[in-house]
Design a protein around this nucleic acid. Structure first.
Lengths: 309, 309
DNA sequence: AGCGAATGATACCCTGTGAGTATTGATCGC
DNA sequence: GCGATCAATACTCACAGGGTATCATTCGCT
C-alpha cells in the first residue's frame, strides 16, 4: 500500500465517482480503476459497492475513508512540521542565562523580540553560571550561552563560535549612605582604605583573574574581604553595609534599591557579553536566534552598543 | 511522498544506520540513499546529519520520525480495521426488535451468543413494531428485523430475504382467578361467552387478519371488546380482569405474574418468527449475524424448534 | 423499443522510476 | 599506513503505473 492508493481512494470516496475523481486528481480514469482494484485486493475488502450505474462506498469503505482522511492530513502536518523545523520556525532552543544577563536590557529585549517573531520556537531558558554554560554547550546539553568573554579561554574557543552582544563595565557598588555613593566616579586609590567584595575564583575563574590583573596594574590592589559566588549575594552584602563591591554590569542602576553604582575612573575594565554556540550546530532555529540577537542588540564597530531597527 | 519513503525513513531513523536498515528492509543500501535524498529534497529539510562516519538524526528528523511512526501505525490500524469490517468482525448491525421478541428465549440467547462471539460488532437494538421494521428495512434505516411472518406480504417479499427462527403459538391469556385459568386447554366455543381482547388492526394488519380468519374458520368467532396495540397493554388489561386475550407468544408463561396462558385446542394458529433483511445487503457482519442466529436457534424441519450446539 | 450518454472495467503500449550491482570517497581503528 | 566501514555515485534493467482506445452495461430520453 502506498500513499497514492490512499490519495486516489480519498478522491473517489469523496466523490463516489471515478470520472470526477480522475479529473480532480489529473489522471486518467483507468488508473484509478486499477489502483483501487489493487488496494481492495491487498485489503481483501470491497471498498466500493459496484452499482449498475456508478459506485457507492461500502460500510468498510466508509470507515476506511475516515481513517484515510486522518492519515493524509497527518502526513501533511508532519511534512509541514518538518519543514518548519528545518527552516528554524519551529523547535526548541536551550539558552543558558547567567544572572548577569538579566541586567542587560538588550538581552531581555532580544529574547522578547525573538519570541514574538518566532512563536513556533520555544526558548528553554536555563539559569546557570557562565562556566557551567560552557561545559553544557560542549556536551550538547545547551544550544547557546550568554556569557562574559572572560569565561572563555582558548581551549574553549575550538568547537565554539561566538558573537559579541554588548559590553559590561566594571563599577563600584556602594551603599547609598556610603561616602562614595554621591561621587561621579572614584579611583582605585580611594578603594585601598575600603573593605572590598569581589567575585569568587572558584565559580568565575577567568573573570576573577582578569579583574585581579587589572587591579594590580592600577597600582592600588584593593583589600578583598569576601568572595561572592553570585551578583545577588554581592549586592546583598553591599546593601547591608558589609563593604563596597566590584561588579561588572550594564547601565548605572543596581538591581537593589539602596545600592548605587559608581564608575571607576582608572580601572577601565570592560567585559564583552558574548553569545556562544557550537560551531558544528546546524540547527536553523539556532542560526535564526543568533542572527536576531546580534541584529537586535547590534554592537557598533566603535565599541558601544545600540539598538537596531 | 509515498509510504515507501516513510517506511524507509523509519527504518533508517530507528537504526541511524543505512546498512542495517537496508538489511532489515531487505533492499540494497543505495536504494535507501536515493529515497532519503528524494524525501529530503521534497521536504527541503536535512533529516539526517551526515557525519564523517555514518549518520545521525537531525532535530527535524527526530521530530519527523515521531510523526512517521504514528502515521505508519495508523495506516496499519486502518487497514486492519477495514479488513475486520470486510470480514464481518467489526461494525454495527441495526436490529429491529418488536416487543414480542423478548418473549422468545432463542432470540435473546442468540443475540447474547453473537455479542460474545463477535465483540467487535456492535448490535444496535431498536425497539419498534413489526410493520415499522419492514418499512425501516426497505429504506435502509435498519439492517435486520425480527418479525412474525404475518407482517410480511408478497409486496414486501421482493428485496427482502428471510429465515425462520422459530414459532409462536396463539394462546389464550386469562387472569389467574378466571374459571379457565386452571384448564389444560380451551376451545373456541368456550370463548364465545367471554369478552375477548385482541390485536389492533391498525398496527398489526397482517397478524390481525390471519387471526380473524382463523377465528371465523373455527366457527366460533369471539366477541372482541378491545383492540390492543401492544402485548403489554393486552396483558395489563387481562391482569386487571377486563377479559381474556388472544396472544401469540412463546412458552407457557405470561410476562405478567397473575396471568396464565392456556392453549386453544381448535385454533391451531401458529406464526413463524422470521429474521428479515435486505437481499442486496452485502454486509459481512450482517451475513455473520444471520448465520449465527439461524444456527443457534435452528428450526427443525418437522416444525418445532430446538437449540443447536 | 431504440438510440445516445454515462460509467466503470479491460486491453494494450510506453515511459519513468525504483531497485540491483559495482564502485568511489572518506574516515576510523589497529 | 592498511584494511574495514559506511554512505554516495554511476549505470543498467525490469516493472509498475499511467495513457489511449475500447468494451459492457445501464439509464434516460424520445
Amino acid at each position: 500500500m502506498e500513499l497514492r492508493h490512499l490519495r486516489y481512494f480519498r478522491a473517489i470516496g469523496r466523490e463516489e465517482h471515478f470520472g470526477r475523481a480522475a479529473i480532480a486528481l489529473r489522471v486518467a480514469q483507468p488508473a484509478l480503476t486499477r489502483q483501487i482494484r489493487d488496494l481492495e485486493a491487498e485489503l481483501g475488502v470491497e471498498l466500493f459497492e459496484r452499482l449498475p450505474r456508478g459506485v457507492r462506498l461500502s460500510a468498510a469503505g466508509r470507515a476506511f475513508l475516515d481513517d484515510v482522511e486522518e492519515i493524509l492530513s497527518q502526513v501533511d502536518r508532519a511534512a509541514d512540521r518538518a519543514r518548519r523545523m528545518g527552516s528554524g520556525h519551529l523547535g526548541t532552543i536551550r539558552v543558558g542565562l547567567s544572572e548577569i544577563a538579566a541586567a542587560y536590557d538588550f538581552i531581555s529585549r532580544g529574547l522578547l523580540h525573538f519570541r514574538e517573531h518566532e512563536p513556533g520556537v520555544a526558548l528553554d531558558l536555563r539559569s546557570m553560571g557562565s562556566v557551567l554554560q560552557i561545559a553544557a554547550l560542549k556536551e550538547g546539553a545547551l544550544d547557546v550561552g550568554i556569557v562574559y568573554d572572560a569565561h572563555i579561554d582558548d581551549r574553549d574557543a575550538e568547537g565554539l563560535e561566538r558573537a559579541p552582544l554588548g559590553f559590561g563595565e566594571t563599577m563600584l557598588a556602594v551603599h547609598e549612605n556610603h561616602p562614595l555613593a554621591a561621587r561621579e566616579s572614584v579611583t582605585m586609590a580611594e578603594l585601598a582604605e575600603q573593605p572590598v567584595l569581589g567575585p569568587a575564583r572558584a565559580t568565575a575563574r577567568g573573570y576573577y583573574d582578569r579583574l585581579m590583573s587589572a587591579c594590580i596594574e592600577s597600582g592600588n590592589a584593593p583589600h578583598f574581604v569576601q568572595e561572592c559566588t553570585t551578583h545577588s549575594i554581592l549586592f546583598s552584602l553591599v546593601s547591608v553595609g558589609m563593604g563596597v563591591g566590584l561588579v561588572t554590569t550594564a547601565g548605572s542602576r543596581a538591581p537593589v534599591p539602596n545600592v548605587r553604582l559608581v564608575p571607576i575612573a582608572d580601572l577601565g575594565l570592560r567585559f564583552e557579553v558574548l553569545l556562544v554556540w557550537r560551531a558544528l550546530d546546524r540547527s536553523a532555529a539556532l542560526r535564526r536566534f543568533v542572527e536576531m540577537m546580534v541584529d537586535h542588540a547590534s554592537v557598533l564597530p566603535g565599541g558601544g552598543h545600540a539598538r537596531a531597527g
